[in-house]
Design a protein around this nucleic acid. Structure first.
Lengths: 220, 220
DNA sequence: CGACAGATTGATCCGTCTCAAGCGTGGTGG
DNA sequence: CCACCACGCTTGAGACGGATCAATCTGTCG
């Protein structure tokens, strides 16, 4: 997938924790791919009511917009990204239409993810939102796994802003899940998941099957 | 914009109120554009907790996915859509890359809209969500305007599912906005807006005047 | 080994949901 | 054309979940 863009000049850039990659309203001059670390896409409300739209890990594309930025991107921890200029990507898309098709595919998948996110935040209770968050992480590549447990790059405030909760409620919900045996805390950012990984694995397998089937269909 | 696809075979289809255009999990076989009426994109939770992602009016494209549907589309009222087959659009994109670029542009804009939607639903009070909903409608083309007032195609339950509220709370919030002089009800689906067009104008001005540059930190 | 930022815990309040009745509007049939 | 009917909308009372404000704790890093 990255090979699609290998014809086009790119370079690496590194960002420190909390550093802004681009902001709302900026002209969309570059496209990025996470090489290591974690990026958060977010909407910064006028009154400081931040909503995190998604966390991006190794291999994920972002910022492939035409026009001006509708959302902001910030580094969660120390992060390395590969950069392309949007104009060169568009030029590449003109020569090789499969590049543009790939961008449409990625954009549609991310659209679906945000739609699911919206449904969860609007309809689930606090504990269920936290459960959903952790379930989504087990199928996430590019995340530190030491021993049997995850090592999250983001702090509580980030997770709370992702799930539409306050840090206090998030803390109480995590405690509840721990008492239920859903997870165990290992230090501040370490978590060990127990029951539910099954459900998520089935879901991600389904997605993989669908994607691969569709790839074949498109190619043939 | 519609002219972009005029090379490609298309046809019209009519849907009755509440009729499904496509469902979650369906293979993405067609792309659509609303000719008249209103379409809702939605996520149907397993327990029937429906979340409406967006309402689409005349001129808006939807369903240009690659792969399987992540969300469902239903007609709100009697709706006419123009249909293209996805394969013919992809073929067109191969011949005319500007078509694919246009799809990326539309996909990105809709991604930004959902992100904003998520921020509002997660952070705003009931009354402010309703205010935002109506403010968004005044700048919406393809909506019945008789005299000085809007004629909405959707019923309360749809608006509630869009804003993440119950119909009861929605009703109380509308009453509150009416008492504040923000809007006036004209029958069941008619509304007359007063204050809010100002806010919308400010927002679009902001989008125009921002010229800041993205921050680059090249390391190789 | 401190010290500080971030995380947790506690008590209380407020907003929205829920359940339950009425009401009005728009459509239908006589 | 009018009366009726049914569905959707509104209104009300009560309960509950999450937010808020405040204090304490703890992991991480210097």
């Amino acid at each position: 997938m990255g090979d699609l863009f290998s014809d086009t000049p790119s370079w690496l850039a590194t960002y420190q924790p909390g550093q802004t990659i681009f902001d709302e309203g900026d002209p969309a001059s570059h496209m990025y791919r996470v090489e290591s670390g974690c990026v958060r896409l977010q909407v910064n409300g006028v009154d400081g009511a931040r909503q995190i739209i998604s966390f991006l890990f190794r291999g994920e594309l972002f910022g492939y917009a035409v026009g001006s930025r509708q959302i902001a991107a910030e580094a969660v921890n120390e992060t390395v990204v590969r950069c392309w200029s949007v104009s060169s990507i568009l030029a590449l898309g003109t020569r090789r239409p499969e590049v543009a098709v790939e961008l449409v595919r990625v954009a549609d998948r991310q659209f679906g993810s945000v739609a699911q996110h919206l449904q969860r935040v609007a309809r689930l209770t606090a504990a269920d939102r936290v459960r959903w968050f952790f379930s989504g992480l087990v199928s996430c590549d590019g995340l530190h796994r030491r021993g049997g447990h995850l090592d999250l790059p983001m702090m509580r405030r980030d997770i709370a802003d992702y799930l539409g909760l306050t840090p206090e409620t998030l803390s109480r919900s995590i405690l509840e899940l721990e008492e239920d045996g859903f997870l165990a805390r290992k230090g501040r950012k370490g978590f060990c998941l127990h029951g539910p990984s099954l459900e998520l694995k089935v879901k991600s397998l389904d997605e993989l099957k669908i994607v691969s089937r569709e790839r074949q269909h498109v190619i043939s």
